[in-house]
Nucleic acid binder design. Structure first.
Lengths: 215, 215
DNA sequence: TTGCGGTTGGAACAAACGTTCGATAGCTAA
DNA sequence: TTAGCTATCGAACGTTTGTTCCAACCGCAA
């Protein structure tokens, strides 16, 4: 179940339902294209046909709008991941599922995910802390899988940092996809995910499909 | 030598020298911390002691300021890379130098690099095109190295896309470092670069520390 | 001294922004 | 009908922003 804390007070009342979803969706679309700062509440209002003042019936502030997008998207992704990964077998399979789920979720909620990935720093105070908490939970989940694949630490001094670094490398590959992915050129994402997992496990030298013999 | 085209008209006159460098440096510092949109020209002026109007003696516009930062930083990095890589031996060594140079430049010009990495989309028209051109040159340089490591293509259908994808994965790892790097925890960058190269070449399963002889 | 071009600052402007206020419909329960 | 709640609107306020104008300063050559 997803985190709920002091910054989501206004899930009470009628400020929910399909209208809210529509507003969040339109806002995500604009913000993913133009960025959070460059998207005004007026833009979102215009896009949805709602008046400017009407927006403030659904959101306390612009930052609250951003927060709602991030919180919904992130906790939904997190739930999906924790459910799927727990059913996996060994660590490699868990990693594969983590990557493929991430990319799958990504294609279904491109705009929202882009916002989650690049607009965290636009949140302040409690709202920042809440999303940061979700992010950390996501990271920890991945880091444990990577640590499992690396095997027991102990030989090198900062072996503890290894899992952290490699996990951050993986998230780097995943998150950077927003910057270049082109459906016409790079679909299907499943293949992309396979490449990513393959690179992570075996590197460029690990043969795939067919191979040269090695020393 | 770095690209020069229609958008850098104002390198004429006295609008250069240490004062310009100071302004660009202060602006980079603020923009790396708060983002381009959240940094006003007034902020930069206040930081440097120059008046608001005085800023417009050095920059045609706020976007021009951003462009100057990106152009200088990127062409300098590009020059450095092309020089160093041409001296390298095999493809693996080239990749290693590419990564280590990138990270080295990165530590010397953290703020400017962060801006180059994340604020491209804030440029429009010719300014956008010019930086995009530099970026493409950088990418091509890397992609050729990766292609060389992968070996001759021809077996799989979209093998041509492989080098592109793997290169983008590498840039993903590199660029994402901005999001988490902590000098107290992650220095020295040379070790980080080694880890990145090792993952790229051999993956998590490749042995490290105890190394096997090769070829 | 005068003159001049490179450099700087004070003041102002128009536009855009986030936010608030008060009013007004529509609906439902008493 | 009345009372109250949900949903929406037009208008406005105060602030910040990028940018411009123009006057003034500086150092140096004539």
């Amino acid at each position: 179940m997803a985190n709920t804390s002091s910054a989501d007070k206004n899930s009470t009342g009628a400020r929910s339902g399909p209208k809210l979803e529509q507003l969040l969706s339109a806002a995500s679309n604009l913000m993913a294209r133009e960025g959070y700062d460059q998207t005004s509440i007026r833009d979102v209002a215009r896009e949805t046909g709602l008046s400017l003042a009407g927006m403030y019936y659904y959101f306390q502030s612009k930052e609250d709008l951003l927060y709602k997008i991030q919180h919904r998207t992130f906790s939904s992704l997190l739930d999906e991941q924790e459910k799927t990964i727990s059913e996996a077998g060994d660590a490699e399979e868990k990693l594969r599922r983590l990557v493929q789920n991430h990319l799958s979720y990504y294609t279904r909620h491109f705009n929202e995910m882009k916002i989650c990935t690049f607009e965290l720093q636009s949140l302040k105070g409690d709202r920042y802390k809440n999303i940061e908490k979700l992010r950390r939970r996501y990271f920890k989940m991945a880091a444990e899988i990577v640590g499992e694949i690396l095997g027991p630490s102990g030989n090198r001094a900062d072996r503890g940092n290894d899992a952290r670094h490699y996990t951050l490398f993986i998230f780097g590959m995943l998150n950077w996809i927003f910057m270049w992915f082109d459906p016409k050129r790079d679909a299907p994402v499943e293949d992309l995910g396979e490449k990513l997992v393959h690179l992570t496990l075996h590197g460029l030298h690990g043969r795939r499909g067919q191979k040269q013999s090695r020393g």
